[in-house]
Design a protein around this nucleic acid. Structure first.
Lengths: 112, 112
DNA sequence: ACAATAGGTGACCATTTAGTCACATGTCAA
DNA sequence: TTGACATGTGACTAAATGGTCACCTATTGT
């Protein structure tokens, strides 16, 4: 088992992913890993403090890990929580895809 | 392209998935598809109105579709939005999994 | 027709959340 | 050591959210 995951609470991960700014931060870190707070701040239309709060949420959810280097703090994307959601949660609903869909189609076509 | 999806806005889907009660509703519909509001209400520790609000959010996100039958409204799980997240968003981070992870490992092991 | 049942609407309140700011700490470089 | 820079903290406001309720409409069964 991995240990980079911090809290790794399902609810924290979903709540973290619910905000568009935080998804944009993940996008930014995906585009270029290991960015500092000020670098990320310049990519977003938001004050440094807003970005800092969002990064804190992402770190608490385990979606971002950071390490300090001198006076800078480098942020890294951690794909593990998302991977786990995919494995244990998304696929749970996605698997019966075909069955549910055809069943739904039948239901909708049924004369009400 | 499918048409059962309503708004299908990425943000709506993530926001809908962010609430544990709504995830529980998806669980309940996954366990037994086509349940009515009152049936779902009895499964959750919440008033009918709370459940109704959550169902409305899920419907707006396209995660649940419903059809009326007499005075009843039957709710069906729609796995398509989750499937799309998996396809277009989760996999985006999950694919470079190995690369990012080893890179992260290297970064963390580096003497600070 | 009438009572019981299933669902819907709008207002309302408590809590959380997003965002900003003044201020403080720690680090680098000249 | 001094000034510039990167980050952190706590308080604060405005907005969104979760939950409940009183009241309403529509359908069913008798």
């Amino acid at each position: 088992m991995v240990t980079y995951c911090g809290a790794m609470d399902e609810d924290d991960v979903f709540k973290a992913l619910a905000d568009p700014t935080r998804r944009a931060l993940l996008d930014a870190l995906f585009a270029e890993d290991g960015q500092t707070l000020t670098a990320l701040e310049q990519r977003l239309p938001m004050s440094r403090f807003g970005v800092m709060k969002h990064l804190k949420v992402l770190e608490a959810a385990g979606l971002v890990v950071s390490r300090k280097q001198g006076r800078e703090k480098l942020h890294h994307l951690n794909p593990i929580p998302i991977r786990l959601i995919h494995d244990r949660w998304v696929s749970k609903y996605a698997e019966p895809w075909t069955a549910t869909l055809s069943q739904l189609k039948r239901s909708l076509e049924e004369p009400s």
